[in-house]
Design a protein around this nucleic acid. Structure first.
Length: 885
DNA sequence: GGACCTCAAGTTTTT
DNA sequence: CTTGAGGTCC
């Protein structure tokens, strides 16, 4: 991006005539979006008919290509909005695609009813044809918690030891079968052994129970539709003609069921366009089959394969580092990412003493970058900070708080989002009109190199969520605003789940699981005994628990307090249900038709929000928390209020329940800039100017468990995860590891990750931690080493870590000439130790070698117990005098 | 029905 | 080591 472009944009931005960019572009050409595409993207967009496989590396503009393709299909009149099926994996991706297509078309895409996640599209289909698999169209979608409770009941009934065969495990087994599109009948004999030999039997029972409950789980949404299409060719034929064009995002993440569903729908016209990147397949553990991408050409002969290889996101060193790592994998489809950019920093590598040091160091670095105190200034403008552009767009839709306008305006300029996104440009122009000083502001920003990053341009990406705590602790301590993505979910809180259970029973009286949850919440004196009576009444009459409860009251099975309470609850439920009935319109049933509108609609007596309030009040649920004197009950009441408030965004209660089941509230819509902390998995599809990748240690990343369970393929998936992590970074990428980390409470010496060795050294800058800056031996500020028993802690200086053999090797690696062959760090340490020898460890003190296993020593420490350590972190006791104490 | 105790497990996660 | 689930006892 040259200065010329910036000035061009500048002129456009301050032009008195206002936002004419869009108009100019639109007037010049009917399809302006094609101009912004590179040749490969253009080919992918313009090859409208027949199968297309788009192999799109990280940051190569695949969403752009995908959305342009949709716009092109619409613009050329190939298809109407409701004739395009476009599926993604996450709601977020679906939302973004929708909004970007709207931008391209110049007006909101009203329709596109079939742009959504696999699951949301399937739910719509299944609600239409539920009866074909024995369900009613108002079926409930169970979450994992419900599933596990249900399976637990079945396991118990089967007389299996729950301890040895936990329901969670069975849930996993069944889910895996469903991911592979295996109904109970299709589970092959080889799987008979599953779950102590009861797997298939329980699977069948589970499916029967689901049918009785008028419910299904996530896997069923896909599996049922596949079954329906396979057994009803006429129906399939209808759908095949309906969806003239099919587009699939993140194709490498599809499982067998999703693949079959797609193949069925696309079999006739074969206008299927799949976009994927085999190098970013990181969901194998939940059933994703990379194989799907490999066999695309086989399933769709004559498929056009387009490779998007020009990266618009990252600097050359970051790209080279990522490429170097991913090169270690075999069986790749092979893409070579390149960039037109030439500037940029090396990928940074830092080793720390322990995880707290790591958190401290990253915290300091973030503060420096934020305050412009870091030595390195921002080297280039990033004209494509789509993360910020998306955020700003969201905020503008919600209404930007006036007090933040200046700040956001500044950031619009500094991130350069203004140069590329028409929508943002127009917004900025609107803001500029009211800002007399904006012109000067813009000029000064453009005149000086940007030397700071906003906190929300920075992210910390970890392998496992437990790593987050160290950063949270540290950031709370230093008052650095952060945001954790993927923490505990709002709807999964106890009070929300209870409230939702009430709604579920009201909307779907056969939902026994929800009924069981609320029957004695709040306490109504209906204990396990009464519940048992109700259950047997329901079972012997073949009705739902709610009806069973009604019968139990009528037949006089229930006595005393329970009788009155149950009778009241049943009556209440009836009342609520009839109030709700006036509002029922299942989402998705109507809007898919070409002609919708005016279905006869009886105005409801009360709104669904009022109904929800009534349910929670009359049931006594709100009162229950009001009377609870736990310190957290006010918070729970607050959450309930929040929950009811959120109902407003939905048409009715069923719409809300569907949303609860199919979406996660991960969008943190907050104004203040915050550093993002999230897992590598959660970061896929995102980008940040500054990325920190901590915890690159053997066993943690690559994860030991992953390798134990899946061997080489597990390792390769971990490597792809590393690739995903590095490629999230636009400008600065910092990888770090700690030499010591508590694993399940036990301090362990950690080896740097093998992935670190796989980064070509000419693209790495090995740095010393900040505390090393003034030379070796600088005393640490006294945070201690995180508890621990060793009395030596406080007297140890950082320097010792960097005198360790492992560190020296690392250091020397960076100083070798680029031509030198990379040496792995995992060289066996000099195991000159012998059993029985007295040794010294910097943290654990003195001890005796009990056992030797390769380069690992089992040592019985005098004060710290028995530990297994890598020899390089231990020295003979006789040499311990080197230590500074 | 609630408080206390014991024991086991302990990645990644969207829908 | 820490958390959570399940069981027991009052």
């Amino acid at each position: 991006m040259s200065r010329f472009d910036e000035e061009d944009a500048f002129e456009a931005a301050v032009a008195p005539s206002g936002g004419s960019l869009t108009q100019r572009a639109m007037a010049a050409r009917p399809m302006p979006y094609l101009d912004g595409l590179n040749p490969a993207q253009r080919e992918a967009v313009e090859t409208l008919d027949g199968p297309v496989l788009m192999l799109a590396g990280a940051g190569t503009g695949k969403t752009k290509a995908l959305t342009c393709r949709i716009a092109h299909l619409l613009n050329t009149g190939r298809a109407r909005q409701n004739e395009i099926l476009a599926v993604t994996f996450t709601n977020k991706a679906a939302r973004e695609m929708k909004s970007r297509v709207s931008d391209l078309m110049g007006n909101p895409v009203a329709g596109m009813p079939c742009l959504g996640t696999f699951h949301s599209v399937c739910v719509k289909q299944l609600r239409r044809h539920a009866e074909l698999v024995g369900l009613k169209s108002n079926f409930t979608i169970l979450d994992t918690d419900d599933v596990v409770r249900l399976l637990k009941q079945l396991i118990k009934a089967e007389g299996i030891d729950e301890k040895r065969w936990p329901a969670r495990q069975l849930a996993g087994v069944i889910d895996a079968w469903k991911n592979r599109a295996l109904t109970p009948a299709k589970v092959s004999a080889s799987d008979d052994e599953a779950f102590n030999g009861y797997g298939v039997k329980l699977y069948r029972q589970y499916q029967d129970r689901l049918k009785a409950l008028n419910a299904c789980d996530f896997g069923d949404l896909l599996l049922h539709m596949v079954t329906i299409f396979q057994t009803h060719p006429d129906l399939l034929d209808q759908y095949q003609r309906w969806y003239k064009y099919i587009l699939v995002d993140e194709y490498q993440d599809t499982n067998v069921a999703q693949y079959l569903w797609l193949r069925l729908l696309g079999a006739a016209h074969k206008n299927v366009c799949c976009v994927g990147d085999d190098d970013q397949s990181i969901y194998g553990w939940r059933g994703a089959e990379v194989g799907n991408i490999l066999r695309f050409e086989k399933d769709f002969p004559g498929a056009k394969v387009v490779r998007l290889e020009q990266n618009y996101r990252s600097t050359p060193h970051i790209l080279a580092a990522a490429s170097g790592v991913i090169a270690g994998n075999s069986n790749r489809l092979g893409k070579e990412l390149w960039t037109a950019e030439t500037d940029g920093e090396l990928v940074r590598l830092i080793g720390h003493w322990d995880y707290e040091d790591e958190a401290r160091s990253i915290g300091e670095k973030i503060e420096d970058l934020r305050d412009g105190k870091a030595l390195e200034a921002r080297k280039r403008y990033n004209p494509r900070s789509t993360s910020f552009a998306a955020e700003l767009e969201r905020l503008i839709k919600k209404g930007l708080p006036p007090e933040s306008e200046d700040e956001y305006l500044t950031r619009v300029f500094t991130t350069g989002a203004v140069y590329t996104d028409l929508k943002i440009q127009n917004t900025v122009l609107a803001l500029l009109r009211d800002k007399p000083n904006a012109e000067n502001m813009l000029k000064s920003v453009l005149a000086s190199p940007v030397d700071r990053f906003s906190p929300d341009e920075m992210a910390i990406l970890v392998r496992a969520s437990h790593q987050m705590r160290a950063f949270e602790d540290r950031f709370l301590k230093i008052g650095l605003a952060y945001r954790v993505i993927g923490g505990p979910k709002f709807y999964e809180r106890l009070e929300c789940r209870d409230a939702i259970a009430y709604f579920r029973v009201v909307m779907q009286p056969e939902d026994d699981l929800a009924f069981e949850r609320i029957i004695n919440t709040p306490k109504r004196g209906v204990g396990p005994k009464a519940l048992l009576d109700i259950q047997s009444m329901a079972r012997s009459n073949g009705v739902s628990l709610k009806e069973g409860a009604r019968l139990a009251v009528q037949e006089g099975l229930l006595k005393g307090k329970a009788k009155g309470a149950v009778a009241e609850l049943v009556t209440q439920l009836d009342t609520w249900s009839s109030l709700a009935e006036q509002q029922i319109r299942y989402p998705g049933l109507d809007d898919e038709d070409a002609v919708v509108e005016s279905v006869d609609y009886v105005p409801a007596e009360i709104t669904h929000v009022e109904l929800a309030e009534r349910i929670l009040d009359e049931s006594g649920y709100t009162t229950m928390w009001q009377n609870d004197k736990n310190p957290d009950s006010p918070g729970r009441l607050e959450n309930l209020k929040e929950l009811v408030k959120g109902l407003d965004e939905h048409d009715n209660l069923s719409g809300f329940l569907e949303n609860v089941a199919l979406s996660v509230d991960n969008d943190a819509n907050e104004y203040d800039p915050k550093v993002t902390i999230m897992t590598l998995h959660g970061a896929k599809g995102l980008e940040f100017p500054v990325v920190f990748l901590p915890g690159w240690e053997e066993g943690l990343f690559p994860s030991q468990r992953s390798m134990d369970e899946s061997g080489l393929s597990g390792l390769e998936e971990e490597r792809r995860l590393a690739y995903v992590g590095i490629t999230r970074a636009e400008e600065l990428c910092t990888i770090s590891f700690a030499s010591n980390r508590p694993v399940f409470g036990q301090w362990q010496s950690q080896l740097p990750s093998r992935f670190i060795d796989e980064i070509p050294e000419e693209h790495v800058d090995v740095l010393s931690p900040a505390s090393m800056g003034s030379g070796f031996g600088s005393p640490r500020s006294g945070d201690g080493f995180g508890g621990g028993s060793a009395s030596f802690d406080d007297r140890v200086s950082d320097a010792d870590v960097y005198n360790s053999p492992g560190w020296k090797r690392l250091k020397s690696r960076a100083q070798r000439s680029p031509a030198a062959k990379p040496v792995t760090l995992n060289v066996k340490a000099t195991t000159s130790f012998t059993t029985g020898e007295r040794v010294f460890h910097i943290k654990f003190g003195y001890g005796e070698v009990m056992d030797i296993d390769g380069d690992k020593l089992t040592i019985e420490f005098d004060h710290a117990g028995s530990k297994k350590l890598v020899a390089s972190f231990v020295k003979p006791a006789s040499e311990a005098s080197d230590a500074p104490f």
